[in-house]
Design a protein around this nucleic acid. Structure first.
Lengths: 247, 247
DNA sequence: TAAATAGTGTCTTTGAGACACTATTTC
DNA sequence: GAAATAGTGTCTCAAAGACACTATTTA
């Protein structure tokens, strides 16, 4: 152990700044989007980055919730969990920065207004980030953080009921399927998905009514459901294409 | 965002100390143990705590590896992953402390020598921590961190081949089963476990020889295996008793 | 009326777990 | 020889996925 100090005097240590960054995900027009801000100040001024800022007073979870609220306006109804902490020394140009990243899932929201000192804020399709020659380059190590967040989100949908966090209070099974398809990036078999969701205890509970209208291109009305009381899906809903990543 | 500062001047912020704490797990005499140190300095002087210390120079992962090496002497052969970051303001009595916790799995090791300023270091049965009226009370929020680490370890054994990190280079299927039983805290069916492990592609690969002797109380020699190249178990090895925690 | 889609039925294959059994080894 | 245990065989049941089909709705 690198010797605990006799006194808890922070000034005897190299300066450390702790920031909170949020990977906020939502689904718009059937595609998965992440919330980004355009930085209004150096370093990386003018580049896209995750919303975040220095932690001052609050608890870490509160700090993340506050960052998110400042950009989206939404407060409740958003799932927030810690993702990981990134502490590579070269992270900030000027000083040692440790960044605690959080992951958020929320239902479709209006366009964000830039909060704090961001020059702009927008929901950006995650598909635009994966591509190599894309115009959206992220500041710091935020591309890595987003990638970690996406992998966590994809895996979380397998064994937790958190897909419902992307939807409103009441939703249909096809809407829930659209969430899985957007996050996983693959099409699912409608019939099997439907039966599977209903077979998992506590995943969803029926409301008893249907939608007012059928789908925009035809089809019967769908029944409405609410999130159930399960915290874990058992058995889990596994991604179809898992074979490749095994090795 | 809580307004990014014009200058990256740490002194304009409340002092933050970043520590690294390690939940190191191993198996001794068939039981899961966690590495603890007895604190030689205030705060919480004389109490048991996780090994750890302030982060100064290195990368976060390096810092955790160094803490671990100082107590156990072992360097390679240990699996290390980030667990979570704990930042409740009341964590340290004197100042704001953010603690990055790591989780480590290693094979059976000799008794630790106290490193740094710990008064003592020991492998402690995790069963002694779960109990309410136990003598082992942990400093800070380390009881919570250990609980989170145990849950992560139990879940990690389900879908990753990391149980092999608790064993030597070569091991038998019954030894691997003993790891699962120690971490999960339940007995597994020997025959079904054996067949299951061999059926998961890339989990283990046969060495071609057997142990020199049979079990201490009789039984045939067991074949030896090495860890395979799988990074994910597919299909996974699920814990038998998952039903209770679902809600 | 044509196309789309919610929801159900059914069949096949895979995997999990229970149980039984043989072979091998130690004390 | 008695007890323990590695490893295999086999059976049953649950679950995943493919496919087919009906009913309902929109344009």
């Amino acid at each position: 152990m690198s010797s605990m100090p006799e006194e808890y005097d922070p000034r005897s240590y190299p300066p450390v700044a702790v920031t909170v960054d949020v990977v906020a995900l939502t689904i718009r027009d059937g595609d998965l989007h992440v919330l980004l801000v355009r930085r209004g100040e150096p370093p990386f001024e003018g580049q896209w980055a995750l919303p975040g800022g220095f932690v001052r007073d609050a608890d870490l979870a509160d700090a993340a919730a506050r960052e998110l609220a400042e950009e989206t306006g939404l407060v409740g109804r958003i799932h927030l969990e810690q993702l990981a902490t990134y502490g590579a020394p070269e992270r900030g140009p000027r000083m040692r920065v440790v960044s605690v990243a959080d992951l958020a899932f929320g239902p479709e929201m209006p366009d964000p207004r830039p909060g704090g000192d961001a020059a702009a804020a927008a929901w950006v399709r995650v598909a635009l980030l994966d591509r190599p020659g894309t115009t959206v380059r992220l500041a710091f190590d935020h591309a890595r953080i987003v990638a970690d967040g996406l992998e966590r989100a994809r895996s979380k949908l397998e064994y937790s009921p958190l897909a419902t966090a992307f939807l409103g209070d009441e939703f249909t099974i096809p809407e829930l399927r659209a969430v899985y398809e957007a996050v996983w990036g693959e099409e699912l078999h409608a019939g099997n998905f439907h039966r599977k969701v209903l077979s998992v205890p506590g995943f969803v509970e029926g409301v008893g009514v249907t939608t007012e209208r059928g789908g925009p291109r035809g089809g019967p009305r769908a029944r409405l459901y609410r999130a159930g009381d399960a915290r874990l899906l058992h058995p889990a809903l596994l991604r179809p294409s898992r074979e490749e990543e095994v090795r």
